[in-house]
């Protein structure tokens, strides 16, 4: 394996300095489950890695008050998930299950048990694989991403965070501190579904996050897709259609709108054509599943 140096900073200042060493390629490290295989395959050739998971607050899962940056203007508390929280910690967290059920479901589908005990939410986001299970969930939760550079923190809406395959809105030296999930009204329903070649330990061919949020006597819907475009995407067209109701005909229209938003490619896991079909099937299943739960 390509050799690299390892640093474990004491604080954020040190982390920033290490990450921005001039002339060096330095990668932040949290769960290692992306970095080690990428370096082994020589797709990433870092000079150094900076282990950020010990930095303060990075493994917290807690409720926080609305802040000046993220979650601004919220009257209720937001759910904060530190970037270095492990997938299993997220999947098993009662707070996440209660405040962001779709994310808990998505985290439960990542890789397998050993990976879920290491992989982190921030890592999944930073790697920004189009197939990353948690990413479409973050989109439908309309989470905010709290990031920190040299001196300042800033907040990037998840909807603007993912720019392309393995490309994010992070500036050099910036690290993800965590995400903040705005509060959702009681009765919010969420579902994450995916399809893969094998049931166990496989990558998603299509991943789908759906949420129904009680609003004005009806529901506001959010649909997010993974593995069918260069980034995880939202499907506002379908959401608008569902805002008018969820009878069978409307659901079918929404499914077609979701299909129209998908821009999948052929790869070794599936053809674009099959991915499109599975977008239809998964969307129908998720919508029906949620509709069945609507009181």
């Amino acid at each position: 394996m390509h050799p690299f140096d390892y640093y474990k900073p004491k604080d954020f200042d040190e982390a920033f300095a290490m990450l921005t060493q001039p002339g060096k390629k330095v990668i932040p490290l949290a769960g290692s489950t992306d970095i080690i295989p990428m370096v082994r395959d020589e797709r990433w050739l870092p000079d150094a890695v900076v282990d950020i998971k010990g930095l303060p607050g990075l493994r917290d899962i807690k409720l926080v008050d609305s802040g000046p940056l993220c979650c601004a203007g919220q009257t209720a508390q937001c759910l904060y998930i530190g970037a270095a929280a492990r997938m299993n910690e997220i999947a098993h967290s009662e707070l996440v299950q209660q405040y962001a059920s779709v994310l808990a479901q998505a985290a439960q589908e990542v890789g397998h048990e050993q990976v879920r005990n290491r992989a982190t939410l921030g890592g999944n986001m930073g790697t920004a694989s189009p197939a990353g299970d948690t990413l479409s969930a973050l989109l439908v939760l309309e989470a905010d991403v709290l990031v920190k550079g040299k001196d300042e923190e800033r907040c990037i809406p998840a909807l603007k965070f993912f720019l392309g395959p393995r490309k994010t809105a992070l500036q050099p030296g910036e690290i993800i501190l965590g995400v903040q999930v705005p509060p959702l009204p009681e009765g919010t329903l969420g579902r994450y579904l995916r399809i893969s070649r094998r049931k166990g330990a496989d990558l998603a061919i299509v991943g789908l996050s759906v949420m129904a949020i009680p609003a004005e006597g009806g529901y506001q819907w959010r649909i997010g897709l993974g593995a069918v475009a260069p980034t995880p995407i939202r499907v506002p067209e379908a959401e608008t259609i569902l805002a008018t109701g969820h009878d069978e005909a409307t659901v079918e229209k929404a499914i077609q709108a979701t299909l129209a938003a998908a821009r999948p490619i052929d790869d070794i896991r599936a053809t674009a054509a099959y991915r499109r079909e599975m977008v239809v099937q998964l969307t129908r299943r998720a919508l029906q599943d949620i509709i069945a739960q609507i009181p």
Binding site: Y6, K8, L29, S32, T33, I36, P37, V49, D51, N88, G111, H112, E113, Q114, V115, N117, R118, A201
Partner: peptide, 24 residues
């Protein structure tokens, strides 16, 4: 990180020891 033959317990939880840097 695909086969699990290197699984060890890390603070009581199973992880792939090939997916952990020793220094960590």
């Amino acid at each position: 990180g695909e086969c699990g033959a290197c699984t060890v317990l890390y603070d009581g939880k199973p992880v792939n020891s090939c997916m952990v840097l020793a220094v960590e």
